[in-house]
Amino acid sequence: MEEYGFFLSFNNMQEIFRLPVNPETLEMKESGDGKSYTIVDFGEINAISYPKLTEITIESIFPAQRYPFVLVPEKGPNRLRRPFEYVELIKKWMETRRPIRFIFSGLRAGEQSRDPRESSDFAVNMAMSIENFSWKLVAGSSGDIEFSLSLKKYVFYQALPIKVDKKGQVKKEQQRPSDKKQPSTYTMKAGDNLWKIAKKVLGDGQKYTIIQKLNGIPDSQLRKLPIGKVLKMP
């Protein structure tokens, strides 16, 4: 037997929950950005442009009790939370100004508490920004919260470092996008130096000077940094 599950996660799956009640419908908006022009002695023409970012709207409830239609288990990472816990978690994610990940997954019976990325089938799995979140207490209920959540597909972008080889060929260093939040501090380990740390955390060893300046490290101490030293990261 197969069912469908809706999951929201943040910071590379470090925080995740499954919607306890599946929405009756999942509205997905795919549209283009074409423009029409009128040409003298010819008429109207349409210039096709790149498609706009996918938009998703979800409407459901955060239940205050275990109704028969509640899909999440009593225990585990996808357990049923109190309604305001879901609200506060989404509000916290919005305040970080970081993308979340929306997953719409086909699940076999018994898979409710598993990582949705390991499920049998995927319909949607994409990074998204929270564009709008509205909620209200349901009158006459025992504390259920009705909510509407509007999401828009998020495209990772960044300035890529460019290197020129001996033949004058320009090469761009491709970096894999990630929705994981960068750490604000880094604790030095055996074998570490600022160049290695900049390469690991910032993706470019040449940025070690940024870490050096941020932590007020003089050039004379670059080779004497102790293991366990906590560095502030940009």
Rank of each mutant, 00 (worst) to 15 (best):
R18S: 12
N215G: 10
R176I: 06
T185A: 01
P23S: 04
T54Y: 13
I56Q: 13
A198R: 09
L26F: 06
F84V: 04
S134E: 15
P116T: 05
T185M: 02
T209A: 09
K136W: 05
E85Y: 03
I197S: 14
Q206F: 13
S9V: 02
T209L: 15
P73M: 12
Q221M: 08
Y86F: 06
T38I: 08
M188A: 00
L8M: 04
F133Q: 09
M13C: 06
E74Q: 10
Y157A: 08
T96H: 11
Y86I: 03
E118T: 11
F84T: 04
P116C: 05
D179L: 12
E173Q: 08
L194T: 01
E55R: 07
V138I: 15
V40N: 11
V164H: 00
R79N: 02
Q174A: 14
Q175S: 04
M13N: 14
G216N: 12
G5Q: 03
D41F: 11
K189A: 09
D165C: 01
G76P: 00
K232T: 03
L151C: 02
E3C: 02
R117F: 05
K52H: 05
M1C: 03
S113I: 08
Y50G: 02
K167L: 11
V170T: 08
V40R: 14
G110H: 05
L149I: 07
I90E: 12
L80R: 00
N12V: 09
I130R: 10
L194H: 00
N193R: 07
K172N: 04
S178G: 02
S120R: 04
S129D: 15
R114F: 11
I90D: 10
Q221F: 05
F6G: 02
P68T: 00
R108Q: 13
P234G: 11
V72F: 03
I56G: 10
Y154N: 07
P73H: 13
G205N: 07
G110Y: 05
E131I: 04
E173G: 03
E74F: 11
F10S: 15
G140N: 01
I145S: 02
P23K: 05
M94G: 09
E74I: 11
S129L: 14
I227C: 06
Q206E: 13
W93G: 00
Q65Y: 12
L137Q: 14
D115C: 04
E118D: 14
N11P: 01
R82L: 10
N11Q: 03
L107V: 06
L107E: 13
R79K: 15
